[in-house]
Amino acid sequence: MPRRRETLKIMGAVGSTCAFPFQADELYGQHEHAPGAAPAPKLPTAPSFFTAAEFETITRLADLIIPRTNTPGALDAGVPAYVDYVVSRNKALQQVMRDGLAWLDQRAQGPFVKLPQPRQLALLRPLDRMKDKPRSGDTGLRFFQAAKGLIADGYYTSREGLLTGLGYQGNTVMAEFPTCLHEH
């Protein structure tokens, strides 16, 4: 909380806030403010930022965090390619991801992807604290927050995640907005 009486804030040159300032609404991908030029959702399968080994770990993480269940999983939705796309355009994330991937292999005492699944999960679970603020040396937490954030963003904005996973039904044409018939 800022100091009570007088907090000076210079809000910059142009544009105040968007109409509804959400707290956690912006996706990592939207931090790149270039207009999404061509609607080209087909992403390449070969990574442009990550090495093959790193990409294998990202792919594994995506599958662990959002596996295929009765609905499609992160791999069905092409999430690893989305993660690579966003990270390749975001310098700050590049550092976090590269450091974190190295940290993960170090903790695994070898390639993380070679660990059996229970050990992979055991390594990740203590990091699943999305609301904690990572401290300066918290490479693991910082990495996990970014990775899970990217994977969740990628999946829940994909056709598979949004339409099938969540059951999005909007963006239609309705003659009237229906009156709620539940008892409230």
Partner: peptide, 29 residues
């Protein structure tokens, strides 16, 4: 109640890994 259901930035804040995470998000959606 002005959220747009195309905006899903909040999903990453939900705890969990795996099927539990998916269910927790879908339940809250």
């Amino acid at each position: 109640n002005y959220q747009n259901r195309r905006s899903t930035g909040w999903t990453r804040m939900i705890p969990g890994i795996g099927a539990d995470f998916k269910k927790a998000v879908a339940d809250r959606y």
